[in-house]
């Protein structure tokens, strides 16, 4: 795992505000700080701005005001040429990063490694490891469209884990999954945290993550984040 230097937080948002083009304010002077290795579960009502917050952390959007630091990088001032380098340190599961439906399960994983410069034998070994961990070995030649919902989510988590990320952003990773598959996804994300990654999960079902050791629960409401009790 990569590390942020000198005890820097993995994620730090300072006085962030975000307003949609229609004038609706979803984030209002929001401040939030996560240390490396934290497991944060973020809930909130629909339209509260959870996905917007994820977009800010991925540098797909910029706040109207305030600062966003991810893995030591100031996203507001981060030049375009350095964004790919930052994104290679982030694993994403969910709405923003769909699977490539014209590629097999194995090829989806290989691509995630290829963009990080991992090829040849090392890539093959890592793909095998990810397929095993995600219980997808028997589906490696199938297209994502041929997988069940649970298998697709497991593949998404495996792809996010491919490059040993420092930060994992998971948007509704257990949505529409049965209990068994939800547990499998939760377990995979928990394993990433154990390996040292900071994990942020946005969900409407925080109950799925209550078993994760050290998980902290937050509620996004009226534009700000409040830590909740388990």
């Amino acid at each position: 795992m990569g590390e942020t230097s000198g005890g820097e937080p993995a994620v730090a948002m300072k006085n962030c505000s975000f307003v949609y083009p229609n004038g609706r304010r979803v984030l209002d002077n929001l401040s939030w700080r996560l240390a490396p290795g934290d497991f944060a579960v973020l809930t909130g009502p629909t339209g509260a701005g959870k996905t917007t917050l994820m977009r800010l952390l991925l540098r797909l959007a910029l706040p109207e005001s305030g600062e966003v630091y991810v893995l030591g990088e100031d996203l507001v001032r981060l030049p375009a040429r350095r964004r790919p380098e930052l994104r290679r340190r982030i694993g994403v599961v969910g709405q923003e990063l769909s699977l490539l439906n014209d590629r097999s399960v194995e090829q989806n994983l290989r691509l995630a490694l290829a963009v990080r410069g991992k090829r040849g034998g090392a890539a093959t070994r890592r793909v095998g490891q990810l397929l095993t961990e995600g219980k997808l070995m028997h589906r490696r030649h199938d297209l994502p469209s041929q997988l069940s919902g649970g298998e697709r989510q497991r593949l998404a988590v495996a792809r996010a884990a491919a490059g040993y990320p420092d930060l994992v952003l998971a948007d509704e990773p257990t949505a529409h999954l049965d209990a068994e598959n939800a547990d499998a996804v939760t377990h995979s994300l928990s394993r990433l945290q154990t390996a040292g990654a900071t994990v942020i999960v946005v969900t409407h079902s925080p109950g799925h993550f209550e078993t994760v050791t050290g998980a902290r629960f937050y509620n996004l409401q009226r534009g700000t984040i409040v830590e909740a009790q388990k």
Partner: peptide, 8 residues
């Protein structure tokens, strides 16, 4: 998707 995965 490529760009979000970190492809330059």
């Amino acid at each position: 998707v490529w760009l979000l995965l970190g492809a330059s």
